[in-house]
Structures are given as C-alpha cells and as structure tokens.
C-alpha cells in the first residue's frame, strides 16, 4: 500500500467506526445545538455584527474542542489497533486530521445554518463566509488533533486539551474572525484574498508540524 492509500484506508475505518456507534456524533450535534440555544436565551438578539461573529466562533471553538478531544481515546480496540501498529505514524495523524476536518466542516455548516436562522444573519457575502468556515475548520481540527495526540500520551484528561489548545489557537482565531468579519461587511475579494493566503499558510504550517512531530509521540 502506498502512503495515500494508507491514509485513505484509515479515514474510511474511522468513518465506519463512527457510523457504527452514532452516539458520539449525535451527542456532538446536541452539544452545539444546546450551546446555540443557550446563547439565544441569554442574548435574545445580536444586533452588532462583530458580536455575532465572535459568538459564532466561540461556539465553534468549544464544539471543535469537544469533538476532537476524544480522537485518540478508542484507539486500542481490535482492527484499529492492528492498523495503527502496522501503518506509519504519519499516516495515522494525517488520517485523523483529514477525518476531523470533514467532521468539523460538516458540523460547522450545520451550526452556521441554525445559528443564522436563530440570530438574524448580518452576513452579506455568504460564499466568503463559508470559505472562512472551511479554513477555520481546517485550522481548528489540525491544531486540536495534534494536541489531542499529546494529551492521549499524557493522562487523557479532556480538560487538558482546552488548556493546551486554546493558547495555540489565538493566531488562527484572530485571523479567521478578521476574514469572516470582512465577509459579513461584504468587502470585495481583493481585500480578503491576502487573509485567505495567510490562513492557508498557517494551516499548512500546522499540518506540516503535525506530520513531523507526531512520530515522536507515537514511538513507545
């Protein structure tokens, strides 16, 4: 099996296991719906676009942390354990990152849809906002996946994922809030394209670092 095929196999396996035990995905969905509804009950309406955007990303941050913190928990069972001991660690981390991007991307889309319905959406350029959502999901899931890997080797305490992950997410959140803020104001692509480039660069750096550093965690 070449490397790409290995990664693809692991992603498929991950999805299959998730589908078998749908409870995890359902609880994730309920968690973010409940967060949105709590925000609705406490805010009632959000008139300021800056607050609207910040609140959305805070909900995404917590949902993402919750979703990804458990990435490495069920790793030692049966078939999955077999694959993990046979395949290179780089394939493991890349498959986890890509799977989490998929998961968080879909979750983010659902969140955005419901959030825009409950709080009237001030977004003027929906395409750019959705692009921002995708870029944000990539950054959140790649950073948090590596952090979850680190925590799984420490003591598997879910609170530790937030403690270690949040400070590392500052640059990403700042940039993504600026990017999506521009999309809300309906600025032209010319203004936002440099932010898009920077976000792609940052995501690239995170993924390359995970690829390089993860083998040191995995070695035991």
């Amino acid at each position: 099996m070449n490397f790409g095929k290995q990664v693809f196999t692991l992603i498929k396996l991950e999805a299959k296991l998730e589908w078998k035990n749908r409870q995890a995905v359902t609880s994730l969905l309920v968690y973010s719906l409940a967060s949105i509804y709590i925000s609705y009950l406490s805010f009632r309406q959000v008139l300021d676009p800056v607050t609207w955007n910040a609140l959305f990303w805070i909900i995404m941050l917590f949902a993402g942390t919750n979703a990804i913190a458990k990435s490495f928990i069920q790793e030692s069972k049966g078939l999955q354990f077999f694959y993990y001991s046979m395949l290179p660690p780089q394939a493991v981390i890349l498959s986890k990152i890509f799977y989490n991007i998929l998961l968080l991307g879909v979750l983010g889309g659902i969140n955005f849809f419901i959030y825009s319905m409950i709080f009237q959406s001030p977004v003027q350029n929906n395409e750019q906002y959705l692009l921002g959502l995708l870029l944000g999901s990539i950054g959140l899931s790649s950073t948090l996946t590596l952090v979850a890997g680190i925590v799984s080797k420490a003591n598997n305490n879910a609170a530790l994922v937030a403690i270690l992950g949040f400070p590392l997410l500052f640059p990403l959140l700042l940039m993504i809030i600026r990017f999506t803020g521009n999309a809300i104001n309906g600025y032209s692509w010319a203004i936002n394209q440099s932010w898009c480039g920077l976000l792609l660069l940052l995501n690239g750096i995170i993924i390359i670092l995970s690829y390089l550093l993860f083998p040191y965690l995995w070695r035991e």
């Binding site: 680190i150 500052f170 700042l174 965690l217």
Partner: peptide, 19 residues
Amino acid sequence: IGSVYGIFAFVMMFVFIMI
C-alpha cells in the same frame, strides 16, 4: 511530550507575534 509541545508552541507563538 514536553519537547513536542514546546516546538509546536514556539512556532505558533512566533506566528502570533508576526501576524
């Protein structure tokens, strides 16, 4: 594990200070 986190954290901190 500390070294892995230290390297990752340093790069992210550097990016933050740059942007």
